[in-house]
Amino acid sequence: MKKIILNKKLNHCKIALFTCVLLMTLSCDLDETQEVATLNNLVMADEFDEDGTPDSSIWGYEIGDGSAQGIPGWGNNELQYYTDRPENVTVENGVLIITAREEAYQGASYTSARLITRGLFEQQYGRFEARIRVPYGQGYWPAFWLLGNDCNVNPWPQCGEIDIMEYLGDEPASMFGTLHGPGFSGAESISKEFTLQNDRFDTGFHVFGVEWTPSYINYYVDGNIYHSLTREDVAEETDGEGEWVFDNPFYIILNVAVGGNLPGNPNQDTVFPQSMLVDYVRVYK
C-alpha cells in the first residue's frame, strides 16, 4: 500500500496528456455545459452534520507513521504521525476537520489524521465526490482517494489506486487526479493537473469527484471533467503494459500528509496548524 508520486511523473504525464487533451477536444468540450455523470443514485453520504468524532459506521483510521504497515513515512518520507485525537480529526459546524499540527509526538514532528472506509464502505464503480477546502503552504499534501480493498492479497499497485484529489500547498491554484495500477504506478502513474483561473483551492470549497464505470474513469472539479481515462487510454499510455485493475470494490481515504518526496518539507513560511475541511462525501451508483 504505497502512494508514491514523483515530480518526474508530472512531466511524463504532461506529454502524454497532451494527446489526451487533443482527444478530448475532439470528442467533448471542456465547457460549462458539460454534464457530469449519469450516476445519480445516492448510495452513501456523510454530510458531517453531527459535531464530535466522525461517524464510526463509515470511518476508521490509520494510526502512526506507516512503520506498522511496513512503510515508514508511508513510502514517501512523509513527516506526520497520524492519530485519531480530536486535535487532528473532528466534526464541527457541519464539516469534517483534519488538522495537521507541528508538535513533537511519538518521535515525529507533525501530527495529522488519515480516515479510511476500509471494511465499512467499499464499492465497485460509481461516482465518488467530496466538497473540500485545502490548507496553504509548502509541505501540505492533502488528498481524497480510493484504494482497492484487496491490497492485502494483491499488493499495491496490483490492487489499484484512484487519486481523486491531490494538492500541494505551495501551488494553491492547482490540483491533480491520478490513476495507479500495475505498469503505471508511482513515477509512471497516469496523472493530470487542473489549474483554476482567477481562483484558488485554499480560499473556498470545491467539489472533487470521479465517475468510475467498467470502461472509463472521469475526473472532475466543480462539475468540469478535466481528465478522462478509458481502458484503451491506460493501454495506450503504458504501451500495452498497464493492466486495468479497477473492477473490484475500493474504499475511500481522506488525509493530510506533511512533507516528503512530493510536496517537499514545510519551510519557515508554512503556517501550522492548518486544516483540510470536508463539507461532504457522497457516493452514487
Partner: peptide, 8 residues
C-alpha cells in the same frame, strides 16, 4: 484587477 488569486 480582481485577480481572485490574492490570498493568505
Amino acid at each position: 484587477e480582481s485577480l481572485g488569486t490574492v490570498a493568505q
